[in-house]
């Protein structure tokens, strides 16, 4: 890279963590071009998001906002669809569609199923 990374545009401006075009730290990382199959978890999360959108419960724009609101370390650590689940849950709680307590109770009672 010819640019001085310390003076890079991406580092000079208050860029959000998901706004990744041209970001120096990823320019040296190889693209993993191997196929990665989705698993049942991924497919179900994707399907639920579509249904929530189709029924007007939650838009794709809200999904994105919820993903963008994750702490940066969480965003980096989580897989694509794990981010989605966190976003869906927080948006539905924020909108009062479900409660945090009910989600916790059902998550724990269903755990390991």
């Amino acid at each position: 890279m010819s640019n001085d990374v310390a003076a890079d545009l991406a580092d000079r401006v208050p860029r959000a963590m998901h706004d990744l075009g041209g970001v120096p730290r990823f320019l040296c990382e190889a693209v993993d071009t191997a196929p990665h199959a989705l698993d049942d978890f991924d497919r179900e999360v994707d399907a639920i998001r579509q249904i929530l959108g189709a029924k007007g419960v939650m838009s794709v724009d809200e999904l994105r906002r919820g993903i963008e609101a994750l702490p940066e370390d969480v965003y980096r650590r989580l897989s694509y669809y794990r981010r989605w689940v966190r976003s869906i849950a927080s948006i539905l709680i924020e909108k009062g569609v479900i409660s945090e307590a009910a989600l916790r109770a059902h998550a724990i009672s269903g755990a390991g199923r």
Binding site: L70, R86, A89, S90, A102, L103, A107, G110
Partner: peptide, 20 residues
Amino acid sequence: MILGDLDERDMLKGLRALLA
């Protein structure tokens, strides 16, 4: 972050139950 202690797979189980 809310429900930070829950694993996302368990969150999905909870969501699935509540949405149904």
